[in-house]
Design a binder for these strands. Sequence first.
DNA 1: ACGATAGGCAACCACACACTTGCCTATCAA
DNA 2: TTGATAGGCAAGTGTGTGGTTGCCTATCGT
Lengths: 107, 107
Amino acid sequence: MVAYRVDVAGDLFKALADPTRRTILDELTERSGQTLFEICARLSMKHRLGISRQAVSQHLAVLEAAGLVESRREGRYKFHDLNTAPLRRIAERWLAPDPSGPEESTP
Amino acid sequence: MVAYRVDVAGDLFKALADPTRRTILDELTERSGQTLFEICARLSMKHRLGISRQAVSQHLAVLEAAGLVESRREGRYKFHDLNTAPLRRIAERWLAPDPSGPEESTP
DNA sequence: ACGATAGGCAACCACACACTTGCCTATCAA
DNA sequence: TTGATAGGCAAGTGTGTGGTTGCCTATCGT
């Protein structure tokens, strides 16, 4: 059987394709466990990004779907933590030719 | 001085965001130095991708702009080679916190 | 010279996606 | 309970982008 490797990389690369999302990852790298409003404030202040709260929320949803961010709810706060695990697997695909084949399931 | 790091990662991640382009990279990994028509044939045959030659050509242009593919012209043939150098720098950004700061120039 | 092969250029189409707007729910403090 | 804070949901908009179609140039074989 071939094509074992499901293309879960799709979500990952798409998530990383947006500059705002990459900046959010930068912020979470600098300080993990931030809330939505904290991230909004930082993007606005130190990155001069005129962006709405909902936009940031949607970005966080994308990052979470890609497995790059994990969130935990406490009361009315929702904290966001960076998960670098998917990043470590990123380049493997083309750097180390996998014997099982590079096929995707359904591109 | 901060914000030395120009966001050249943008093109890279955008290039990787498309499944067809990732499949092209797979093919070039398996066999480097293919021509446009060879790549077209492989995408069509073993990947069942109904895609036009021009579409593949445009994908190759994107990959080349991202530095992932280099091309050399010989007569009427144009050979495409994989360049994995950009891939090695991919994950560094969030895995190894850079003292110079993670800032982008202009997102 | 002629046709065949390999590739490039430009305009058009359609969908995806980033972002906004408007309104709603939930938790906490007074 | 009331207001403020933190966040969610959903519809609408507009640009970006993957894809196509049509035509053009360049190189090779005969």
